[in-house]
Design a protein around this nucleic acid. Structure first.
Length: 563
RNA sequence: GGACCUGUAGCCUAGUCUGGAUAAGGCGUCAGCCUUCUAAGCUGAAGAUCCAGGGUUCAAAUCCCUGCAGGUCCGCCA
């Protein structure tokens, strides 16, 4: 049932208003919805307080709206709590793992590209933000019933690979030692500009089909992709497809695109011999509004290959096509969007996020693989897991088996890492700090997981089947009714979160739901003599547990039943 | 120089789209609560010129303008 609609109808009917905006009072004992009377003040030539009282006296309560009360200039409405409780709790009980889905993607396809880390080294924490946000959005899309495919674009032919192929000559290549090689080589490059020529020459050879170079590149990329996949799959992040950029070197798609762009009459060859698209008049904030597509020697640039790739992605899924990119790509993405529009094509939707910054001695800056100023994801994962194991042993002694500790420590550690990134909005910089990344208390994944485990524990102890037929939905306490109202909100939070591609809405919601549950837990006993009260509290606890599980899953975080 | 994002207690954040009632959490600090369903928890206290200045409005953290500070971009990189 829709209380808001009913209240609006009530107001519109009685007072002949065009439209009313309802708001929610700051706390529960002031009601569930309110109508601020300020706007009518001029028209009726009365004070808003007078209007509120007048309305209060005229309006009649209904089955759904139990009380209507003027509080100062506001007219406040109280809904029928037991009807609300019955509706919400039974819905959760029926839908279980699907509760919260609006099924808005039913019958639709979606495609999301995320992570797409350069295969040149073990990834740092900043890169992980992309993967974690992307994976969460993938999960939400699937939850909303979009037939979703996640793609990882492998930049396997860039300058960085060329650099590594030179740097690694005669050396053993492992996922772990690539970073050092890359950093060293970048230092050398600074002192020796001739190396730059060698790098480009290699790329030219590759594009001309040189087999030896091709093999060398592939070796490095394979090692990287294997290492990265292992790492991300350990985190519970997987991909439906790995798309290799190199395929756009040797197929004719890039040439086709250049031909098509020629027809727009905006393609020209500049003084360096590059093929460039003129983007004047599209309001792009650049000194020279162009999109450079090839090098002077005719080899393709990332921009051209990416264009071909994006068009391929659009062929698969024209709408609901997303790509998670760092904020540094914003302008670049607009260039591509404009170019696509010249070809009469739509653009994917960019999901931008800001960088994870690292505090230096007296500086603050983004992590740079090139400079080696990074915190590696693998190091963070290891530290977090060690901390989790220590905490489990401290708190639970020797109660858990080795196998269980292994699984639980991963759930907690990786959950904490993911949550620390998902709870802040995408566009906010995160300043990396070991303490808050490894935080297991307060607004953290372990807090939510603990709340879930606690609810699960009550249900285990109560050991009762839920039979919705006999339950009374007349909840007496403030804490219970507050929880029910929060449970009802979950669906709209999920919807908002996917509409705006912001997982942090869900993260923040779960924190406040957990806080409310823990308040309830400390104030009221669930397992009690009174069978009627116990039964209704059990379905409530089970509902909270279910919503926590569903919400955590959408963030890619496991919800253990015991911890 | 141009463009985008961010600025809220000592620290980290929510709220800003869609203006509304005492600005909401967490960390840290201080004081309490485990013989009762898991203390990774709960209760209480202290702590805020919502970056600054103008404007719009009955009403501004929220909308508009002007500054300031931090991040990002404007490449024969990806």
């Amino acid at each position: 049932m829709n209380f808001e609609k009913e209240i609006k109808k009530l107001l519109l009917k009685e007072f002949n208003l065009k439209d009313v905006q309802l708001s929610v009072p700051p706390n529960q004992d002031m009601g569930d919805y309110s109508f601020p009377c300020f706007s009518l003040s001029k028209k009726l030539k009365k004070s808003p307080n007078e209007i509120a009282i007048e309305f209060q006296n005229k309006l009649k309560t209904t089955k759904n709206i139990k009380q209507i009360k003027a509080i100062g200039p506001y007219l406040n409405f109280y809904v029928n709590n037991s009807l609300l409780a019955e509706e919400v709790l039974i819905e959760i009980h029926k839908q279980k793992k699907k509760y919260g889905s609006s099924h808005s993607g039913k019958g639709k396809k979606a495609l999301i590209e995320h992570t797409s880390i350069n295969p040149n080294a073990s990834p740092h924490v900043g890169r992980a933000r992309n993967a974690i946000i992307g994976d969460s959005i993938t999960r939400i899309l699937k939850f909303e019933d979009y037939k979703t495919k996640s793609h990882y674009y492998v930049n396997d032919i860039g300058k960085q690979i060329s650099m590594l192929s030179i740097a690694s000559e005669g050396k053993k290549i492992t996922f772990e030692n690539l970073l050092d090689m890359y950093v060293d080589f970048n230092k050398k490059l600074k002192d020796n500009p001739d190396l730059e020529k060698e790098i480009l020459a290699n790329l030219k050879k590759l594009e001309d089909g040189d087999k030896k170079i091709k093999k060398g590149f592939k070796q490095i990329v394979d090692v990287c992709i294997r290492g990265q996949s292992r790492l991300f799959s350990e985190l519970g992040i997987t991909y439906d497809a790995f798309d290799y950029e190199s395929q756009y070197l040797w197929n004719n798609k890039t040439k086709d695109i250049l031909n098509k762009l020629k027809k727009t009459k905006k393609l020209f060859v500049d003084e360096h011999g590059r093929q460039v698209l003129d983007l004047k008049g599209y309001n792009l904030p650049m000194k020279v509004p162009v999109y450079v597509l090839t090098r002077g020697d005719g080899t393709s640039l990332y921009s051209l290959r990416d264009l071909a790739y994006t068009i391929d992605k659009l062929k698969k899924t024209r709408k609901n096509n997303f790509v998670v990119l760092g904020e540094d790509h914003k302008l670049y993405f607009n260039q591509m969007k404009t170019t696509l529009s010249l070809l009469n094509l739509p653009s994917p939707k960019m999901i931008p996020y800001s960088f994870v910054l690292l505090k230096g001695e007296d500086t603050i800056g983004k992590m740079a693989t090139r400079k080696g100023t990074v915190v590696l994801l693998s190091d963070l994962m290891r530290e977090a897991k060690e901390k989790a194991i220590k905490a489990i042993k401290e708190k639970r002694g020797d109660n858990y088996s080795k196998k269980k500790i292994e699984q639980l420590s991963k759930d907690i550690a990786y959950g904490a890492i993911k949550f620390s990134m998902l709870k802040v909005s995408n566009e906010k910089n995160v300043i990396f700090d070991w303490n808050s990344a490894l935080n297991f208390e307060g607004e953290s994944a372990p807090y939510l997981q603990y709340t879930h485990a606690r609810a699960s524990s009550i249900l285990r102890k109560a050991n009762k089947r839920i039979n919705t037929k006999n339950i009374s939905f007349e909840f007496k306490t403030e804490e219970e009714n507050k929880l029910i109202k929060s449970l009802k909100q979950f669906k709209e939070i999920v919807k908002k979160s996917i509409d705006e591609q912001k997982p942090n809405y869900i993260a923040n919601y779960l924190v406040s739901l957990s806080q409310e549950f823990n308040e309830f837990y400390h104030k009221h006993q669930v397992i009690v003599e009174d069978a009627k009260i116990m039964e209704q509290r059990i379905i409530l606890v089970d509902s909270v547990r279910q919503v926590l599980e569903n919400g955590l899953n959408l963030l890619g975080i496991n919800a253990p039943c015991e911890m």
